[in-house]
């Protein structure tokens, strides 16, 4: 089980829960299960998000491993200038 934080307005789409518990070993499983368990999140997840693991930002990184030790946040996809 990993704990994952959602940003405020995303939480609203997941029945208002800012923190969710998900059974996942890597980012791919995390995103997949999030969408399955909370269909409201699906369109946002499909558009693309960044995942922060212990303060490091990941874009498109399915196999990045996660565990209950990590702090995980789903964030809008980070882009630059």
């Amino acid at each position: 089980m990993v704990k994952v934080m959602l940003w405020g307005s995303l939480a609203a789409l997941a029945e208002g829960k800012p923190e969710l518990e998900i059974e996942a070993k890597n980012i791919k499983q995390l995103l997949q299960r999030l969408a399955e368990d909370h269909p409201g999140l699906k369109p946002v997840l499909e558009k693309g998000v960044s995942v922060s693991i212990d303060g490091m930002m990941y874009n498109d990184a399915w196999f990045e491993e996660i565990s209950s030790e990590n702090e995980i946040c789903i964030l809008p996809r980070i882009e630059g200038g």
Binding site: W7, G8, S9, L10, A12, L13, G16, P18, P43, P76
Partner: peptide, 21 residues
């Protein structure tokens, strides 16, 4: 998008975001 409840009328506001703790 991302507004709960979902708006019933169209507008020029495409997205809503909220952050914090």
């Amino acid at each position: 998008a991302n507004l709960t409840p979902k708006p019933t009328k169209p507008s020029n506001i495409a997205n809503f975001y909220e952050f914090g703790h």
